[in-house]
Computed example of a mutant assay.
Amino acid sequence: MRYAQGGGLTDAGRTARERVRLRAVERFENGQKNREIAAALRVSERSVERWRRQWRERGEAGVLSKGSPGRPRLSSAQIADWSGSWSVAR
C-alpha cells in the first residue's frame, strides 16, 4: 500500500509514534531484547531492530522524528522570493 506524503500520518500520529520509539529507548537502556520490546509496544521486531541501530549510532536523537518528508524545506519568505524571481525571469 502506498501512503500520501508524510507516510499517511498526521502530526499527532507522528508524535504518538515518536513516543513509542522513546519508550523503546527506555527498554534498550534496561537491556531488554528486541522481541520483548516489540511485543510490549505492539510493533514489529524489524522496527525495533532499526530503532536500536539508530539509537546506538546517534543516541536518543537518532530515534526522534525527522518530520514529514513532504513539507517544504524553504521558509515562506524564501518561497515568495523564489516565486517573484520566477515571474520576472519569464
Rank of each mutant, 00 (worst) to 15 (best):
R35K: 15
G67K: 00
Q32S: 11
R27E: 14
S75I: 03
W51N: 00
A39G: 12
L41Y: 13
N30R: 12
S65F: 01
R90I: 10
S68M: 05
E60P: 01
D81Q: 10
Q78C: 07
R71D: 15
D81R: 07
R46A: 13
G6N: 03
G8A: 02
R21H: 09
N30M: 09
G13F: 02
A80L: 06
S44V: 02
G70M: 10
S75T: 15
S85M: 13
T15G: 12
P72Y: 02
R90L: 13
E49V: 09
A12H: 10
R52W: 04
I79Y: 08
R21T: 00
V88E: 15
A39W: 02
R53K: 14
T10A: 11
G8W: 04
V43W: 07
A77Y: 12
N30C: 09
R50N: 10
G6C: 03
E45I: 06
V43A: 09
L22S: 13
T10Y: 05
E60T: 09
L74S: 14
G70F: 11
L64R: 14
D11Q: 14
S75C: 05
R58P: 00
A40K: 03
L74F: 15
S68F: 00
R56N: 13
N30D: 15
V25I: 13
E36Y: 03
R53C: 06
S65I: 00
R17F: 05
L64P: 00
A39I: 06
V43D: 05
S47C: 12
E26K: 02
E49L: 04
E49M: 09
R52Q: 12
Y3Q: 07
R35W: 12
N34Q: 11
G84T: 11
R52T: 03
T15L: 10
V43K: 04
N34E: 07
P69Q: 08
G59E: 02
R90G: 14
G84F: 07
E18H: 10
G67W: 09
P69S: 07
S75F: 03
R71S: 14
V48W: 00
I37L: 08
R35G: 12
L22A: 13
R53L: 14
S44T: 14
K66I: 03
F28C: 02
G70H: 08
A24G: 09
E29C: 12
E26Y: 05
S75E: 05
E60I: 03
R19I: 07
A24T: 06
F28N: 01
R2H: 04
R46W: 12
S85A: 15
L41V: 11
A4T: 06
P69G: 14
S47R: 02
R17M: 08
G31Q: 02
I79H: 11
R56Q: 15
K66Y: 02
S87G: 02
G84R: 05
N34M: 06
G62C: 08
R35Q: 13
R52S: 04
R21C: 05
R46S: 13
P72V: 03
I37T: 03
R53P: 01
E26F: 02
S85I: 07
E18S: 10
G31N: 03
V25A: 15
S85K: 13
G62D: 01
V43H: 03
